[in-house]
């Protein structure tokens, strides 16, 4: 089992919804974004600049794990790289080590609240109780490990059942994000990577990311996709006559 994500660059419309969903899901401090939208050169035969929805790659050979002196950053069995806020001492080795700049050190100035010096909203207060953010430690995308774990405990499948799937994947209006098990050749992520020549960011770093990108084209029907089958006939909801 190795959780992975595929980002379809042709589908992504650069709408920022994934950033917003992650903020809500994890009550992110005002100055922090786990996922980001960045402009980069695409892969493929004729590279152009595209905007990528990026987040921690959950690298298989993660430099951040290697450099962490306290064992706060670890790679779980399922491939998710996590940070234990209680063990992290804020040395920031990992921030430097991550070649993708996917880690943020939560300094005090990044946690001033939505409306600094004016009001602490109910949502922020609730967040303090429901989700831990420790000033002086390092943070990053955790592939919504909480959702994965809680979902699996209920017998749900991450990437298929919404409750067990990352928040950004669920909210994406363009359906540009796909989540699933990279070790399962029949999973949608594996199929997309295989059939659409998925690529990792900077393979030369030798970190083996679990996030892949594809850049299929809109408007030029290429190979049929699994999700191409005609949509299920929607139910007519409550129309009398």
């Amino acid at each position: 089992m190795r959780w992975g994500m595929v980002v379809d660059l042709s589908k992504c419309v650069r709408c920022y919804a994934c950033l917003a969903a992650c903020r809500i899901e994890h009550f992110l401090p005002m100055g922090i974004n786990w996922p980001r939208l960045v402009a980069l050169e695409t892969g493929g035969d004729s590279p152009t600049v595209s905007t990528y929805s990026v987040r921690c790659n959950q690298c298989k050979d993660a430099p951040c794990v290697e450099v962490c002196p306290t064992g706060a950053t670890t790679r779980r069995e399922d491939g998710v790289v996590t940070v234990d806020q209680d063990k992290c001492v804020g040395c920031r080795y990992c921030v430097v080590a991550c070649p993708y700049q996917n880690r943020t050190f939560l300094s005090k100035d990044k946690d001033q609240g939505f409306f600094p010096g004016r009001v602490v909203t109910d949502f922020e207060k609730a967040g303090k109780k429901l989700y831990k953010h420790q000033i002086g430690t390092t943070e990053k995308c955790n592939f919504c490990a909480e959702r994965i774990d809680a979902g699996l405990a209920k017998g749900l499948k991450p990437g298929i059942d919404r409750e067990a799937t990352p928040a950004c994947v669920n909210t994406c209006p363009a359906r540009a994000l796909t989540f699933g098990d990279l070790d399962d050749p029949n999973s949608e992520v594996s199929r997309l990577i295989r059939e659409k020549k998925g690529f990792q960011l900077h393979p030369e770093y030798n970190t083996d990311p679990s996030v892949y990108f594809i850049d299929g084209k809109i408007g030029q029907s290429d190979e049929p996709k699994v999700d191409d089958k005609a949509d299920k006939e929607p139910e007519a909801i409550g129309v009398g006559e």
């Binding site: 919804a17 917003a20 809500i24 669920n170």
Partner: peptide
């Protein structure tokens, strides 16, 4: 089940 950044930030 999709929502955009504006809707989500309504909070």
């Amino acid at each position: 089940g999709t929502m955009c950044s504006k809707g989500l930030s309504s909070i």
